[in-house]
Computed example of a mutant assay.
Amino acid sequence: MQHRRLRFGRGFRVLFDCRGVQAAQMVIAPGGCEGGPDNRHRGAEQWLYVVSGSGVAIVDGARRALAAGSLLLIERGEPHEIRNTGRTPLKTLNFYAPPAYTPAGDERPAGRAPRRG
């Protein structure tokens, strides 16, 4: 069992991964954004759940409003950007299958799952 209390401080933070799925938290300041037209995960699907705040997701050119309780699936290879359009931090919990980031938060090359040792 792995356990972590989520604090949603700042930025992007990998929490842990297990059996081909990774959890991470992301906080975007008011007026801020993450990603852009060239941002895509070539080797992983991303499930994004909005814990609090509001914003907009632009996925493969389509815009979707985000608010607390929103669940968004960004499929492998889809270009995407997440923008905070509200007055408070946009806090999200993200799951990647397979894991998309190293523990330090650097993106893994497509198809590179973490090594077990």
Rank of each mutant, 00 (worst) to 15 (best):
A23G: 12
R87M: 09
P37T: 12
R115Q: 14
P98M: 10
R108G: 00
A113L: 12
R116D: 12
E45V: 07
N39H: 13
N84L: 03
V21I: 15
R87C: 11
M26A: 13
R76L: 10
D17Q: 14
I28N: 05
P103W: 07
G117T: 15
G55N: 04
G31I: 08
T92D: 00
R19W: 12
F95C: 09
P98S: 10
T102S: 13
C18L: 14
G61M: 04
W47D: 01
L73N: 09
A67E: 13
P89K: 05
D60R: 10
R116Q: 13
Q46V: 00
F16Y: 15
P79R: 01
Y96M: 05
D106W: 06
E81V: 14
I28S: 03
I82D: 00
T88C: 10
F95Y: 14
A23L: 15
P79V: 03
I28E: 02
N39G: 00
F95I: 07
N39E: 13
A65T: 13
T102Y: 02
G69Y: 11
R76D: 01
E34K: 08
S54Q: 13
A29L: 12
L71W: 09
R87G: 15
T85W: 02
P79L: 07
A57K: 04
Q25R: 09
L73E: 04
L15K: 11
G55I: 01
N84H: 07
G35N: 05
N94F: 02
E78V: 03
R112W: 06
P103I: 06
Y96I: 05
P37F: 08
Y96N: 01
S70P: 08
P99M: 06
G32S: 06
R115Y: 12
N84A: 06
V21L: 12
G117A: 14
R76F: 03
G105T: 06
D38Y: 04
R112G: 02
I82G: 00
G43M: 05
Q22F: 03
A97N: 11
R42Y: 05
C18P: 00
L73P: 05
I82T: 13
P103H: 09
P30V: 03
H41T: 02
P98T: 10
L73D: 00
A113S: 12
A29D: 15
P37N: 10
P103L: 09
A44V: 05
A44D: 05
G69N: 09
R112V: 14
K91D: 00
G111M: 10
A23Q: 06
A62D: 11
G61P: 00
N39D: 03
R116F: 12
A23W: 11
E81R: 15
I58P: 00
S70W: 04
A44K: 04
E75C: 12
A67R: 15
P114S: 01
S52A: 14
E45D: 15
A68C: 08
S52E: 15
A57V: 09
R40N: 02
A24Q: 05
R116M: 08
H80V: 06
G117P: 14
F16E: 09
G43S: 10
H80D: 04
G105L: 04
E45K: 00
R40W: 01
E45A: 08
I74H: 01
A68F: 07
S54A: 13
L93D: 06
P109S: 03
V50R: 01
T85H: 02
F95M: 11
G20D: 07
N39L: 07
A113R: 13
T92C: 15
C33W: 11
A110E: 12
N94E: 14
G105F: 03
